[in-house]
Computed example of a mutant assay.
Amino acid sequence: MISAQQLPFPNKIQRVMEEEACEEQYDSENCTCSSTSTESNSDSPVILKILQNWVPRVSPYFDKEHYTYVGRQIVIQESIEHFGAVVWPGALALSQYLESNQERFNLKDKQVLEIGAGTGLVSIVACILGAYVTATDLPEVLENLSFNISSNIQNMNIHKPEVRKLVWGESLSEDFPSSAYHYDFLLASDVVYHHTALDPLLETMVYFCQPGTVLLWANKFRFSTDYEFLEKLSSIFDTTILAEFPESNVKLIKATVREN
Results as ranks from 00 to 15, higher is better:
Met156Ile: 06
Leu198Ile: 14
Glu19Ser: 14
Glu20Tyr: 15
Asn106Asp: 05
Ala21Cys: 11
Asp43Gln: 08
Val112His: 05
Leu187His: 05
Pro211Tyr: 07
Leu233Pro: 02
Ala91Trp: 06
Tyr132Cys: 04
Phe105Asn: 04
Asp238Arg: 09
Tyr207Gln: 04
Asn249Cys: 11
Asp184Trp: 00
Phe237Asn: 08
Thr196Gln: 13
Glu203Tyr: 02
Ser171Pro: 07
Leu94Ile: 07
Asp109Arg: 04
Pro139His: 11
Asp199Val: 12
Val122Trp: 03
Ala91Ile: 04
His195Ala: 13
Gln111Val: 06
Glu170Leu: 12
Ile50Gly: 02
Phe62His: 10
His66Leu: 03
Phe176Met: 08
Thr225Leu: 15
Asp137Gln: 04
Asn101Val: 06
Ser40Tyr: 01
Met205Val: 15
Glu231Met: 12
Tyr69Cys: 00
Ala4Leu: 11
Asn144Ser: 10
Glu228Ala: 12
Ser235Gln: 15
Val75Asn: 09
Ser3Met: 08
Ala21Gln: 13
Pro246Ala: 07
Gly118Thr: 01
Ala117Arg: 02
Thr68Met: 05
Tyr227Met: 12
Leu138Glu: 02
Ala218Met: 05
Ser179His: 10
Ser146Trp: 00
Lys251Thr: 13
Gly130Phe: 01
Glu140Met: 13
Val75Met: 13
Asn249Tyr: 10
Asp109Gly: 01
Tyr26His: 12
Thr32Tyr: 06
Phe208Val: 08
Tyr181Lys: 09
Gln154Phe: 06
Val112Trp: 04
Gln6Glu: 13
Gly169Pro: 04
Lys254Arg: 14
Ser224Ile: 14
Thr225Lys: 10
Ile47Val: 14
Ser146Glu: 13
Ser95His: 02
Lys160Arg: 01
Ile128Val: 07
Tyr181Glu: 09
Thr68Phe: 10
Ile13Phe: 09
Ala93Asp: 03
Ser37Ile: 13
Tyr227Gln: 09
Tyr69Ile: 03
Val16Cys: 11
Phe237Glu: 06
Gln14Phe: 14
Ser235Leu: 15
Ile128Ser: 00
Glu81Gln: 12
Thr213Trp: 07
Ser173Gln: 15
Thr204Ser: 12
Tyr227Trp: 13
Phe9Ser: 07
